[in-house]
Every structure is written in structure tokens, then in C-alpha cells.
Design a binder for these strands. Structure first.
Length: 211
DNA sequence: TAAGTGATGCAT
DNA sequence: TGCATCACTTAA
């Protein structure tokens, strides 16, 4: 099904309009679509998004809640771009920017299935089992080589280093791994009661400890 | 369960 | 300028 040779694979990026609604809407809609990273040989690595979190403009847990800074600038830009930030002195996390310019909303990608070019991802992040490869927000950034240089890049344009592409078989993927469930978000200390984490509980690559 | 890691942002 | 905090991971 999803195992076509990466070099023959021509993904179609999701359109800008996909990311224009509130992150609350976009976050569940992203489940089952593809997060893809261009590799040095021009092929694609990545896989199906299986866990997301929405961060909203009026949400104290959102990095943009207290206004624009150098760090969160991309969140205030147009939708369909990446917001990549550095955290805990070691790691990067990857978001898709949503809503219109000036409105700081984004979707944190917390886990993907390592469907395409997992050999390349394992070079970036050596692990015993594929299960550990991309089952967390910083894990997938390591596996895909996502770092600060990719902050702000267009996710809707094929020449980009990172894109979010339409999975033509999304419906089947969601049916097989779903239903989509919503829970509280992970690792935050404010707005802990909001149900803005979305996941496909039947998929083994959902982040481990918080299934 | 806790330590590691350093940028970030707000208080001083 | 200083310091608490942090949308995490790993080793134990």
C-alpha cells in the first residue's frame, strides 16, 4: 500500500486552505496525512501523522499567547508554514502554522508512522525498534533531521525540504487505526483541562507513555 | 522517576 | 543581568 519506492513517489502537498482554519479544526484533520522530509538523494522520508496537539490564540499554553517574539515569529505568519522550536536544551518540536496572519495558532505534530524510507530515519536516530523511531515530537524531528533552519518553511510547496502531503488512502488509514480520540495535552502546566490532543489510538506509533 | 540540557522570557 | 521555566527523552 504505502510501500512504493521512495524515488518514484510524487507526493501532492495539502493546499494552503487546509491550514487556514483554527488549529482546533486542523489538528484532527491532519491525522492520517503524510509528514515528509526531503532526503539528500531527493527521495522522501516520513509517514502518516498519528498524534497531534492544537495550540490556540486564546490559549495560555500557546507560545504565541503573550505576543510575538523572535522565537515564536513563524506562528504569527501565514498558515501552511512550519514553526520549529528548541526545547529542554536538546530537542526540536515541529508545528504546522494555522489561522490567518497575526493569529498565533499551530498544530504540534507529536507522532508519525515511519512508513517511508525508515532506513534513512534510522541513520539519523539509531534505535532498536521502529516503534521508538518517530513516536514522540522530538523523536520525529531527530529522525527527520528537522531543526531550527526549517523554522518558517512552506509546507504546501513541493520544492520545500519538509511538506505535509495528502494521503489518498487517509480514510482507510483512519478507519483502520481509529477512531480519532481527543484527550488533554501532554507536558503543559496551564490550560490542562482542554481536550486538544488528537490521536489514532489503534496505531502503535502514538507516543508511548501517554497512550 | 529523575537528571540532563541551554535557549527563552520575564523579573530585577 | 539573573533565574525559573520548558509543547522532551533516556537511562535506571
Amino acid at each position: 500500500m504505502d510501500s512504493a519506492p521512495p524515488s518514484l513517489f510524487s507526493p501532492v502537498p495539502l493546499p494552503c486552505s487546509f491550514f487556514e482554519p483554527s488549529a482546533r479544526i486542523v489538528a484532527p484533520n491532519l491525522l492520517g496525512h503524510w509528514l515528509l522530509r526531503r532526503t539528500p538523494d531527493g527521495s522522501w522520508a516520513g509517514g502518516e501523522i498519528v498524534e497531534t496537539e492544537a495550540y490556540l490564540a486564546d490559549d495560555p499554553a500557546c507560545h504565541g499567547f503573550r505576543g510575538e517574539t523572535a522565537r515564536n515569529r513563524s506562528m504569527f505568519g501565514p498558515s501552511g508554514r512550519a514553526y520549529v522550536y528548541f526545547i529542554y536544551g536538546n530537542y526540536f518540536c515541529f508545528n504546522t502554522v494555522c489561522a490567518r496572519p497575526g493569529v498565533a495558532e499551530a498544530v504540534l505534530i507529536r507522532a508519525i508512522a515511519p512508513t517511508f524510507n525508515s532506513a534513512w530515519m534510522r541513520k539519523n536516530r539509531p534505535v532498536k525498534h521502529d516503534r521508538e523511531l518517530t513516536s514522540g515530537p522530538a523523536k520525529l524531528c531527530l529522525a527527520l533531521g528537522i531543526e531550527r533552519a526549517l523554522d518558517g518553511v512552506e509546507l504546501v510547496s513541493l520544492p520545500s525540504e519538509v511538506i505535509v502531503a495528502a494521503n489518498p488512502n487517509r480514510k482507510q488509514f483512519v478507519r483502520k487505526n481509529g477512531p480519532i480520540t481527543a484527550t488533554a495535552r501532554i507536558g503543559i502546566s496551564t490550560a490542562v483541562d482542554l481536550s486538544l490532543r488528537f490521536l489514532l489510538g489503534g496505531n502503535e506509533f502514538v507516543s508511548r507513555r501517554h497512550r
